[in-house]
Design a protein around this nucleic acid. Structure first.
Lengths: 196, 196
DNA sequence: GTCTATACGAAGATAGAC
DNA sequence: GTCTATCTTCGTATAGAC
C-alpha cells in the first residue's frame, strides 16, 4: 500500500507527528526532544530533517494541526443532530478521557505549544489560534442549531473551550476530575438557559 | 535595610524567584534556563546552588508559590466588601493586564509549570495545586459573602479560575482580548443570577 | 528515505577557592 | 555569598554516504 496522498506524507512522518502531539501533552514543547519523538514513534532518526526540513518548529506546527483536525472532527460528529448539552459533552468528554487514561499526566497539546510560544516561531501561535478557532466555530454551530442566537452561541463556544481547557489544567494539578465536573455542571446549566 | 526574615531569603534570591515567575509566563518551565534567570534578575551566577540546593525544581517551586501568594493577596483585597462581580473582575482583570502589557506574549506561570510537570518533580504539581486551590478558596469566600450558597460559590470559583485561565491562553493564541472579554461577560451574568 | 558521524551550543549540576 | 572552572548530558541541526 503506502499510497502517498498530497500533503499527507509517509507512515513514519505521520507517526512522528502523532507522537509529537502525544508527548507535548505530557512534557510540553520545550520538554520534548527529537530523542523522545523517535523513541515513541519508532521512526528512523535519519529521516527527521528529510520529513521536517523546518526542524522542530515544523514538527510542532504539524502536531498542532493534527490535534486540531482530530478533535474538531470529534466535536463535529457529536454536535450534529444533538442538543445543546452535546456541545459541552463533546468537548469536555474528550479531555476527561485524556486525563483519566493518562493518570492526570496529560493535557492539551495545543495549550502546551501556546504557553511556550515565543516570537521566534510565530507559526506556532498561528497554528494554535487556528485549532482553538475551529473548535469554537464548530461548537458555536452546534449551539445555533440547538436554538441559541449566533452572538450568544459564539460567546458560549468561547466559554466552553476556555473553561474546559482551564479545568483540564486544574485537574492535572489536583489529580482529580473535580474541576472538570464542576465546570461541566455549570456549563450545562448555562447552555440550557441559552437555548430556551 | 536588608532585614532577613526566616524563610524569606536574601535580595538576590528573591529577585531570582521573581524573575523565574516572570520568565515562565513567556517561555514556560523547560524553555527557561538558569542563564535567562541570571540575566533577567541580575543575580550572581555563582550563588544559584547556594540559594537553591534543590536546583531548578526548587526555584520553580518557589516561583509558583510566589505567584500564588501574590495573586491571592490581590484577589483577597478586591473581594473584601465587594459584590459578586468583584470576584470576576479581581481575577480576570489581573490577567488582562498581563496580556496587554506583554503584547499577548505572557500568561500564567502556574499554568506553564503545570502543563510541563512530570513524575520526576511531583513538588511542582503540588505547588500548582496549592496556588489554584487558594485562588478558588478566596474567590469562593467572596461569592459567599455576596450571597451565594457555599456549594454554588465553590463551583463558580472553579469556573472562574478555569475559564479565565483558559481564556488567557486563547488570548495569547489569537493575540487579542476577545476570548477573555467573552468569558467575563458570561461569568458576570452567571454570578449575578447565583447571588439572587 | 534512511544511515552515520559530527558540529556546536546550552542544559543542569558539582567542586573547591576566596 | 560569590567566584571560576569543569563535568556530563542533551539539545537542534548539518553533511555526505548509501
Amino acid at each position: 500500500m503506502n499510497v502517498i496522498i498530497a500533503g499527507m506524507g509517509t507512515d513514519s512522518r505521520e507517526r512522528m507527528v502523532r507522537s509529537a502531539a502525544y508527548l507535548f501533552r505530557e512534557r510540553g514543547y520545550s520538554g520534548t526532544g527529537f530523542r523522545d519523538v523517535i523513541a515513541h514513534s519508532g521512526a528512523p532518526r535519519g529521516s527527521i530533517y528529510h520529513h521536517f526540513p523546518g526542524g522542530k518548529v515544523q514538527l510542532a506546527e504539524d502536531a498542532v494541526r493534527y490535534a486540531g483536525d482530530f478533535l474538531d472532527a470529534g466535536i463535529r460528529a457529536a454536535v450534529e443532530g444533538g442538543d445543546a448539552a452535546s456541545a459541552v459533552d463533546a468537548f469536555a468528554g474528550w479531555w476527561r478521557g485524556v486525563l483519566v487514561k493518562s493518570g492526570f499526566r496529560a493535557g492539551c497539546p495545543v495549550v502546551a505549544v501556546t504557553v511556550e510560544s515565543h516570537d521566534d516561531a510565530p507559526q506556532l501561535v498561528k497554528a494554535s489560534a487556528d485549532a482553538f478557532g475551529r473548535w469554537q466555530d464548530t461548537l458555536a454551530t452546534g449551539l445555533e442549531n440547538a436554538g441559541a442566537s449566533p452572538e450568544r452561541a459564539a460567546r458560549l463556544a468561547t466559554l466552553i473551550v476556555s473553561s474546559v481547557e482551564g479545568a483540564t489544567i486544574l485537574c492535572r494539578a489536583e489529580r482529580c476530575l473535580r474541576p472538570l465536573d464542576a465546570v461541566v455542571a455549570e456549563l450545562k446549566e448555562i447552555t440550557r438557559t441559552a437555548v430556551d
